[in-house]
């Protein structure tokens, strides 16, 4: 298994200080990437330079009757997130992510750590481009 962003090769696919949000099953890099976005209980915010993880709660959005997905996007935008890794996001959240200029990268059946490492290598496909 290659280390995160340690190898030579292509420059990473971001320009601003990166902060990657990941929908995850649990609270650690060893937990798996999860499909649910808008009504996720929390997000892992991963700094790909240091692989440090910050958790942010999404409780306020998951509880609302309508508009959970766009509320989650607003939350990520406020926190300065530059990319989102998810199995998939719903059509409405995808639209909000486009407005927030947060690209979405697909990962499934991998851990958060593996997904962020693959993202740094440019190895994840963007899923929000037409």
């Amino acid at each position: 298994m290659s280390g995160a962003a340690s190898g030579p090769g292509l420059p990473p696919p971001w320009t601003a200080p990166a902060l990657v949000a990941v929908c995850a099953d649990g609270r650690d890099l060893s937990d798996r990437v999860h499909a649910r976005f808008g009504r996720a209980g929390f997000f892992q915010l991963v700094d790909p330079e240091t692989m440090a993880v910050t958790l942010i709660s999404n409780d306020e959005n998951r509880a609302v009757a309508q508009g959970a997905g766009t509320g989650a996007v607003e939350l990520l935008a406020e926190r300065g997130v530059t990319a989102l890794i998810a199995t998939r996001v719903g059509p409405k959240a995808a639209e909000a992510l486009r407005y927030a200029a947060i690209p979405v990268y697909a990962a499934a059946d991998v851990t958060v750590g593996e997904a962020v490492a693959a993202f740094c290598r440019g190895g994840l496909a963007r899923v929000d481009e037409v």
């Binding site: 609302v64 009757a65 309508q66 508009g67 959970a68 997905g69 766009t70 509320g71 996007v73 607003e74 935008a77 406020e78 059509p91 409405k92 639209e95 909000a96 407005y99 927030a100 200029a101």
Partner: peptide
């Protein structure tokens, strides 16, 4: 009340689907 307007990039953005 439908989450159709969000502050993104510092300004309100309308999400017509919602």
């Amino acid at each position: 009340r439908f989450g159709a307007i969000r502050i993104l990039g510092g300004r309100p953005v309308v999400l017509p689907d919602l």
